[in-house]
Structures are given as C-alpha cells and as structure tokens.
C-alpha cells in the first residue's frame, strides 16, 4: 500500500474543534466504525462526537493512535504505555475519559479507566468515597445501621 494516501476522517468535538485523524485510528471506536460503515462515504467525512469536549477527545485520540498500531508493539510494552497513560490523567479527566469511552464504545479504554477508578476506591471508607466523588449521603442513620448489619455477612 506504499504511496496510497491514508484515509482520513474529521471528528468534531462538542465544543466545535475539528480533529483530522487516520481512519484506522478513529475506528478504534466502535461508534465511529459503525457510523462510517453506515454512511458508506470514504472521504471528507465529518463525524460529530456529542458530549465529548476537545480536551477529552484529544486524550482519547492519543489512546486510539497507540492502540491502532498495537500490533507493532510487544504486549507488555502496550501494557506499560496504558499504565503511564492512565496514571497521568487527573481525576476530572479520568471521569471524562470514562464517559467518552462509553459513548464512543472504546472497550479497552473503558476497562482501563474503570480499573483505575476502582483502584482509587479500594481501601477507602464510605465517607472518603463520597468525598472523592462529591456524593451526598442519602441514608438515614437507621438505614445505615441496617445495611451495616446486612454487610457483616460475608461476601464471597
């Protein structure tokens, strides 16, 4: 395929920023892949990505770029890369990435993000988790007591 021009697509973030990327990179997202298949149009496609801002989208595309060429890397190399990638995302970006991975159907990114958030929750008290997620406690003390009793029972 040397000399053949790479097929490009244009993605538009929710705040109107355009990203021109290779088709094979964009197709890491099943949502985009399906959209391209349905459209049948190969060139100069504009695909709006609702609910995903330009900051988030550029980070998502960084992930897609790496994974589109994943076959060129050793398995542990891509694992190492994933680890660093998700490590450098701050809490806000992490949520936005999760949300984007869900709406754009990027399974690998969703798993990566979910694992990271789970690791933040692990070992924390209910109050610490609420603070981390900015959640309001909507239990009455009586309800809390009841749940506590139920949870004394072992989970496997």
């Amino acid at each position: 395929m040397v000399g053949v021009k790479k097929k490009m697509v244009t993605l538009v973030s929710s705040d109107g920023v355009e990203f021109v990327v290779e088709k094979r990179v964009a197709e890491q997202s099943l949502f985009i892949k399906n959209a391209l298949n349905e459209g049948g149009v190969e060139e100069k496609v504009m695909i709006p990505i609702p609910k995903v801002t330009s900051d988030t989208l550029s980070s998502v595309l960084e992930y897609c770029e790496k994974h589109a060429s994943a076959t060129e890397f050793q398995e542990n190399e891509i694992e190492e890369w994933d680890k660093e990638y998700i490590e450098k995302a701050d809490l806000d970006l992490l949520y936005y990435l999760l949300q984007a991975s869900y709406s754009m159907s990027i399974m690998g990114l969703m798993e990566l993000g979910a694992k990271k958030v789970a690791s933040l929750i692990r070992g924390k008290s209910p109050q610490e988790i609420r603070e981390l997620f900015n959640i309001k406690n909507d239990f009455t003390p009586e309800q809390e007591e009841e749940i506590r009793r139920e949870m004394q029972w072992n989970y496997e």
Binding site: A114, K115, A118, I121, R122, G123, K124, S125, P126, I129, R130, F133, I135, K136, N137, D138, F139, E144, I147, R148, E150, M151, Q152, Y155, E156
Partner: peptide, 15 residues
C-alpha cells in the same frame, strides 16, 4: 472491579 473487601464501604456510599 473491586475486591469483596470493598463491598461494605461501597454499600454505604449512597442509595
């Protein structure tokens, strides 16, 4: 993705 030991904390976060 959480271990079983986190269940009791998770249960008390919110409804």
């Amino acid at each position: 993705r959480l271990p079983p030991s986190s269940s009791s904390s998770v249960s008390l976060v919110s409804k």
